[in-house]
Structure formats: C-alpha cells, structure tokens
C-alpha cells in the first residue's frame, strides 16, 4: 500500500506541484516525482531559472526561486502529498493503472500526470559544446554574475531571450541580442525596456556560425557582417533558442504527441488519448506557455484524475 497512489505526477515544477496540491484537496493520495528522465532542474522546475516574475497574480514582483519555494511549500502543506526527488525512468500500463519506476523505487498509480516540462535547446554550431560553461551558458540567472563588465550576447528572439538580456545588463557592460529573424518578439513591456536600455544592441537577421576562444570564449563568427565585420568580440554567449518537450516516457505508453513532440491534450480537461493519463504545463501542446497557464492545466488535470477515478469506481461496483 505504501507505494500505491491515486495520482502520480511526473515532474515537480510549478505545474506538477500545483497539481499535487489540488489532487490532495480532492482527496487523492498523490506522489510528485522530482525529475523526468532527462531533466536536471531542481524541485520548482524552470521557473527557478527566471530572475523576476511579474505576471503571477497575487505577487506583483518576486524572483522565480521565491515563487517556486512558495508553490512547493503550498503542496507540502497537504499530508496526502508525497514529493520525492527521484527521476522517473519508466512508465508502464498495468491491469489497474500504471507502474512508474525510478532509480530508487517502483510506484503504482491509478492515474498519471506528465508535467515533465522541457529541456533547453542546445546551440548546434562549432565551438558551442567545447565552450559550454566556458563562456557558453544556458542559465542567465545562474551564471550572469560571472560576466561583470564583460561583453555578452544572448541568442534568440523570444520573451525569455529578452528577459535574459535585461538581466545580463545588471552585470555586463554590453549585451547583444543576436536573432535569426527580422524582429525580436518579447512581450511589449519587455520590448520597451530593451529599447530604453543603452547597454543592449539588437542584431537581427543574423546567425552565429562559430564560437571561438582559447581557454574561454573570446569571439563569435556571424553569417553576415555587422558593422562591417563578421567577427564579434565578446566573452559570453547565453543561449535562449527554445525548448525541447520531455515527452519520451509518455510516448513509451502510447501517448500521442504532435510534430514538436508536445503531448496532445484535450484543452478542456488536460486528458491525453490514453484513459487515466493527463499532461500539463510546458510539455503539453498549448501555444501560450507561462507558469500561470501550466498551473491552471495542472489543477485541471488533478480534477480530471479525480473524476476519472470516481467513474472507474462506479464501473467496478
């Protein structure tokens, strides 16, 4: 009985933790597993790598780690919630539900929620792997402080890239944003901040083709001239070119994913094509991905799991 649960959540980011809290409110014995097979993020998930969060109602402005801590604490308030910092390595269907294996144990669940999130898409150009952590970085909030008075570039054109660039201006003397498209596309509030920040220079319609250095990065090569030069001298390259959904475990039990690898969910109830299996947050196929939307999907999934279990009980009786 110890390892039997009503609701097993794979992933303990904001989405998974919110689903755990809601599952417990609905009386579900809930297990929330800290990692999926390839995610290395700590409990709290990707929001722990965001510097400032200003779009989560109830909190005008706080850091990502602070918000994650509050959400985790909220989930831990419930006795029915067990959070384990274990990596799920295998999910299988069984007669009455699902079996989830981690490197430390085996758990049985009547329902499963994939809140596995994503991993950073790596920059695939010569030098990117060689200089990872030697100037090439994926987490501005973690490593930005090491580039005090240096010149850095952020690769990408999303709101996340813009926020990384704004954060890096706290440390670096110069921040380039290098984007392959015509126009970067941050939220309007961040677009305005970028335009007003004298340290930031945006280079559009341009790709990095190579990262060079000795022990540490000292320049990048561009695919077209910028200020009459294809070489751009800098000390750091922060990569923010998107994410890859972590849906492998879900695919193993036949859950349908789209072309991007995102789990296809019914947007009404967070269900997947497999009865008893739900998905929520960044791994699911909703176009607008924010912690606030992931949390909503997670809570919806918890409610759907509750309804599914009750319906199954009726079938049995």
């Amino acid at each position: 009985m110890k390892n039997e649960f009503d609701f097993i959540i794979i992933g303990a980011g904001g989405t998974g933790l919110a689903a755990a809290m809601y599952g417990a409110r609905l009386g579900l014995k809930t297990l929330c597993l800290g990692h999926s097979h390839t995610s290395e993020l700590p409990i709290g998930g990707v929001i722990t790598t965001t510097n400032i969060v200003e779009n989560y109602p109830g909190f005008i402005k706080l850091t990502g780690p602070e918000l994650a801590e509050k959400i985790e604490k909220h989930a831990r308030e419930y006795e029915l919630v067990t959070i384990k910092e274990e990596k799920a390595t295998e999910v299988k269907k069984n007669k009455s539900g699902f079996t989830v294996k981690t490197e430390k144990g085996t758990y049985e669940g009547k329902t499963i929620l994939f809140a596995t999130g994503t991993k950073w898409r790596k920059l695939e150009v010569p030098g990117a792997e060689e200089f990872e952590n030697k100037g090439v970085a994926y987490c501005a909030i973690c490593d930005g402080a090491l580039f005090k008075n240096k010149t850095v570039a952020v690769v990408g054109g999303s709101d996340s890239a813009a926020k990384d660039a704004l954060l890096l201006t706290q440390y670096a003397k110069k921040v380039y944003i290098i984007y392959r498209g015509e126009k970067i596309r941050p939220e309007p509030i961040n677009q305005k901040r970028i335009e007003q920040n004298k340290k930031i220079e945006v280079i559009t319609n341009t790709n990095i083709t190579e990262i060079k250095g000795e022990k540490l990065v000292n320049k990048v090569i561009l695919d077209k001239e910028y200020k009459k030069n294809k070489e751009l001298e800098l000390n750091g390259v922060f990569v923010a070119i998107g994410h890859i959904p972590l849906s492998e475990l879900a695919k193993d039990i036949g859950v349908k994913v789209d072309k991007k690898g995102e789990i296809i969910i019914n947007h009404k109830d967070s269900s997947t094509n497999i009865p008893g299996v739900f998905a929520a947050g960044d791994v699911a196929d909703k176009p607008f991905k924010q912690l606030i939307t992931g949390v909503a999907e997670g809570c919806t999934a918890a409610h759907s799991a509750y309804e599914y279990i009750n319906e199954e009980k009726v079938k049995v009786s």
Partner: peptide, 21 residues
C-alpha cells in the same frame, strides 16, 4: 558569492577552468 566579488569569480574560473556555478 562570486557575484559580489570579481576577485572571487576570477579565482573560481582559475580553479575550475570554467565559468558555471
């Protein structure tokens, strides 16, 4: 805290040969 001291940041890079914390 390497964000508070450039000297400490340099020391860390020299010891570890890399720039991640």
């Amino acid at each position: 805290d390497v964000s508070a001291s450039e000297k400490a940041a340099k020391e860390m890079v020299e010891k570890s040969g890399q720039q991640g914390v």
